[in-house]
Write a protein that binds this DNA or RNA. Structure first.
Lengths: 269, 269
DNA sequence: ATTATAGTTTCATTATTCGGAACTCAAAGG
DNA sequence: CCTTTGAGTTCCGAATAATGAAACTATAAT
């Protein structure tokens, strides 16, 4: 189902096992993993042991189960802080959320999937599939389509075939052809719409976050329900979204600029 | 400074490089990493390349920098969801926060450090990886001491020498001897106090989360400022804390119980 | 033109990993 | 009580991947 990454080296294999354990969404026994893993018993055993000694998997003696370890949470904190748009985008998301009163999402691409990095809830609570760290499909979400539309042809060729094109709702885009047409439109408009593509009753408008050199950095969206508002009303927020996106892009680019600390002492002399 | 984990296998080396990159708290150039890494140029180069192809490091072509990749955020989301106390503790933390109006922390041990898994601010909720995922010292925080007090002698022998015993404030416990005495007291009392050990003006009371078999699972704390309240007043919350801790422990143990799905079909026949 | 610095590639050597097979252990079945 | 079964663990020669000194390239500084 979920595309397995090419796991070339030893590290790749270890990470693929980590993904395998993650995919169970509960602590698993050795045999559970063995059944779905491509590795022979002895090999898998050793890989699991390594991961446990490295603290990236946790082994529960009592239950004899493996689960993802806390070391990952620590690493993710660093990842969130240092690598992504998330920290610089924070105040802008809050501002958007307060200005619109709707749910705001910040996302990046993780391979062929959308990965949600941050979220602001509307005052009124909407029950929805998404929290920081969660992944979702790219071909049928607002942020996903906004990002796909701004990838290079090469990257699209690699990523589009990896989409599942599952029909979540009657309005889901279910083929690469349809998607390609939609992406063309999105590129022209500068924003993407989610017309209940992914969840019935959930609509959204999204814009990409692009660097000065038009490199894709991520996407921001405003989400609501068709009961409360309409796509046309949501579209009114596009300028705000675009403003926020450019602010975030500028902040992200500026943020890494001062780190030109190659040889500061020399320069001062 | 920060203790480097024993990195036995290939995976260990890769993870140690990941930690190295994380420790910069900003995107880094190859040479930055090289200078602090124990590996020769070619070796480090290959390790970094592997990590990039695996999506666990991100390489920025334009700046030629490495940063932790989003794949880690996804894994951490799974780790948070599946392995830790965090998901089951959530409602209990919220309840505590509302009952007391103070800041609540949930933490676990990650090696010798305290790793914060969740937090309730007196006022607003906190984003997942911005606060959750942070690490702190064990020997001078409420949650840290509460957890250390309930480790086995073996584990203490391993972990106590790894503490830094840095004097953050005049009241910081700065030696293993003093700490051992304090832990004895904590074991008797059933709760730990932070008497501005870590930050001036910040006080806290913490209790461990223990399984039925007295295995340490984590710790919960109520934090406040010495300006607003006192240790004696905070102590009044100990029963609430202990109640919450036992609820969380029970929930966590129950939660993994139904997964006894070894041979369900056979049993039904 | 020369030197210095950062990053990349090569390849013979060395160390790890691989995985079939054999083993332990505990529980289920006769 | 003995046998069977299956999960989990260990062994060890063969297969594979990692290692790192050195050479190389590209770019910037002198």
């Amino acid at each position: 189902m979920d595309t397995v990454r090419k796991s070339s080296g030893t590290v790749g294999k270890a990470l693929s096992v980590l993904d395998l354990v993650a995919s169970f969404e509960r602590p698993v026994r050795f045999n559970d993993v063995l059944e779905v893993s491509p590795y022979p018993k002895a090999t898998l055993y050793r890989i699991l042991q390594n991961l446990v000694t490295e603290g990236v998997l946790a082994f529960d003696r009592e239950w004899q189960t493996y689960a993802l370890g806390v070391r990952l949470v620590r690493l993710a904190h660093s990842a969130w802080t240092q690598s992504s748009l998330a920290p610089v985008a924070r105040p802008h998301l809050t501002a958007l959320s307060q200005a619109t009163g709707e749910t705001i999402h910040l996302a990046q691409l993780d391979g062929p999937h959308v990965l949600y990095l941050d979220k602001r809830d509307a005052k009124r609570r909407v029950n929805m599939f998404s929290e920081a760290g969660k992944v979702g499909p790219a071909y049928c979400t607002g942020v996903g389509k906004a990002m796909l539309a701004h990838l290079s042809a090469d990257e699209l060729d690699r990523i589009l075939p990896q989409q599942s094109y599952h029909r979540y709702t009657p309005s889901t885009i279910c083929s690469q052809q349809e998607l390609t047409v939609e992406l063309q439109q999105i590129r022209q408009d500068g924003f993407a719409l989610d017309r209940e593509d992914h969840e019935p009753g959930i609509i959204c408008v999204a814009v990409p976050v692009l660097s000065r050199s038009s490199q894709l950095m991520g996407a921001i969206s405003i989400t609501s329900t068709s009961a409360r508002t309409s796509l046309n009303k949501l579209k009114k927020f596009v300028p705000d979204l675009q403003h926020a996106a450019s602010q975030v892009a500028a902040a992200a680019e500026y943020w890494r600029f001062p780190d030109n600390q190659g040889t500061p002492e020399k320069m001062e002399i």
